Simulated assay, not measured.
Amino acid sequence: MDILIRWALFLLAAVLLAFLLEKRTEKERYLYMKLVFYACLGSVSFPVYDIQLPLGIILFLIVLHPQKNSRYKRYMALFGFLFFLLQLFAGPLDTFTVREETQQIGRVMITDQSFHHLLSQIEKRVGDESLRLEQSELLFDQGGNLRNATFEVIAKSPKRFVRYDISYQEITGTITYRPREEVLERSLETYYQKLIDASRSFDTLRQLSIKQILHDSKTPYVEMDMDGLYETFSLQDATVLLIGDQGELIPYVNTGEDVLANAIRLTYLRADGQSLREKKILLYNYSFETSRRKGVVR
């Protein structure tokens, strides 16, 4: 549940509870507002490293000693403290927006809308604005049948990062979603910021001219690997193509300048699983202004 919704429900409950308790109390000026205040005080916390201390309830028990209607004010402070505990335990649980599960999707052709549907299903299950791609691997045959696919992505919550493993298997026609690891936010923030948005990579896959890749392939299978890191490429080691705005593949004329980009690597596989030496690198989200950006290495 969104944190703003939780707080709105808490304030509404505090107001209603204060209204009910006020009828049982001694007369006191501004009592209604004081009861709501003590509820809010009890919910206040203070972060110390990765620990949230219940500062509000500590202040109430040690510093504040209301004389009039003290029992009811204590009830409200404890109500706020219970909300603090709910926040404490509900926060990490909220990061698991997807439990391990399997979804039936059927046969997927990488050249038609069934592949777009697969990507859309992934975005619906774990996709949001925070979702970023670590890496993915797709294996398809010369006829365009997607044999298997894996995606490793990271989602960000207010306090945690959660890594997800997502896989598709042609044999079963299913997608499997599996939360793999939960990491404290500050320990992964720098790495996370270097990754590309998963939605941008998925849009590239949707637009990519797969038919051109299949037409140029001399082997029964093609393996497509994507890396979410924004890297510097020297463009010396392999055949390099740029992915245009419409998904077309544009031969890159090497001018000697490095390029900063995200990459899709193509490996051509024979029927026995052995790969050809020939490999291609497809670049997208690229920039040629690398001379101004120091400290980025491949």
Rank of each mutant, 00 (worst) to 15 (best):
E100Y: 06
R125L: 01
A238Y: 05
S70G: 08
T204W: 00
Q142P: 04
L235I: 13
G247Y: 06
G144Y: 00
R163P: 00
Q193G: 12
V240D: 01
E22N: 08
K27Q: 11
Q142L: 13
H117N: 15
S167D: 00
W7A: 13
V162T: 13
I62M: 07
Y221P: 05
I154T: 02
L61N: 03
N254D: 15
D50Q: 09
I57K: 13
L214S: 10
M224L: 15
Y268A: 02
F233I: 02
Q104P: 03
S199T: 01
E137A: 12
I122S: 06
L229H: 15
Q104W: 05
I62S: 05
V183G: 00
V108K: 09
L85F: 10
Y192I: 10
Q236T: 07
F46Y: 15
I250S: 11
F89H: 09
L118V: 05
S201F: 09
A77T: 02
A149W: 00
L16Y: 01
L17K: 04
E26C: 10
Y72T: 12
G247L: 08
H116E: 12
S167Y: 00
I250R: 14
K73S: 02
R24S: 14
L35C: 07
C40L: 12
A18G: 05
T290H: 07
L88I: 10
R206I: 04
D165T: 02
R160A: 07
L21E: 07
H65A: 13
I281E: 07
K279S: 15
L269N: 01
D165R: 03
S130F: 01
Q121M: 14
A238T: 10
L12R: 06
G127I: 11
R292G: 11
H65R: 15
K279W: 02
I196R: 03
V63A: 14
P92Y: 01
E123L: 14
Q169L: 03
E278T: 08
R178D: 09
Q113R: 04
L249I: 04
Q246V: 12
L88K: 10
G295W: 13
N69K: 12
T239I: 05
